[in-house]
Simulated assay, not measured.
Amino acid sequence: MITVDKADPLSSDSHSLIEKLSAELAAITGDSGKSNFTIDSVDGDRSLWVLARNKKGDAIGCGAIRPLTENIAELKRMFSDRSSPGVGKALLTFLETSAKNMGYTELWLETRYVNHKAVNFYMNNGYVSIENYGPYIGREEAVCFSKVLRD
Rank of each mutant, 00 (worst) to 15 (best):
E141C: 08
V148N: 01
C144T: 05
I2R: 04
L109P: 00
E19D: 15
S11Q: 02
P85H: 07
I65D: 00
P135K: 11
T105H: 07
E131A: 13
S11A: 09
L10P: 06
T97R: 15
E141N: 09
R112N: 07
I60E: 04
W49E: 14
R139V: 04
L25P: 04
R77P: 11
T69S: 14
K76Y: 01
R66H: 06
V128R: 04
R139A: 07
S12A: 15
K6R: 13
G30D: 08
D45L: 09
S84P: 01
D43L: 14
M123E: 13
I60S: 05
V143G: 00
D151C: 05
V128I: 14
T29I: 00
G88S: 12
R82T: 14
D151W: 05
K89V: 15
P85K: 15
G134K: 08
M123N: 07
A7I: 00
F145Q: 10
K20R: 15
E70R: 13
T29V: 09
E141Y: 02
Y127H: 04
F79E: 10
M78Y: 01
V128G: 08
V114T: 11
K100L: 06
D81M: 10
N54A: 05
V143P: 04
N132A: 12
A73C: 13
F145S: 11
A142D: 14
G61E: 07
L149C: 00
S35W: 14
A27C: 10
K20C: 09
F145K: 06
E74S: 02
I65H: 02
T38M: 13
V143D: 03
D81G: 09
A27E: 13
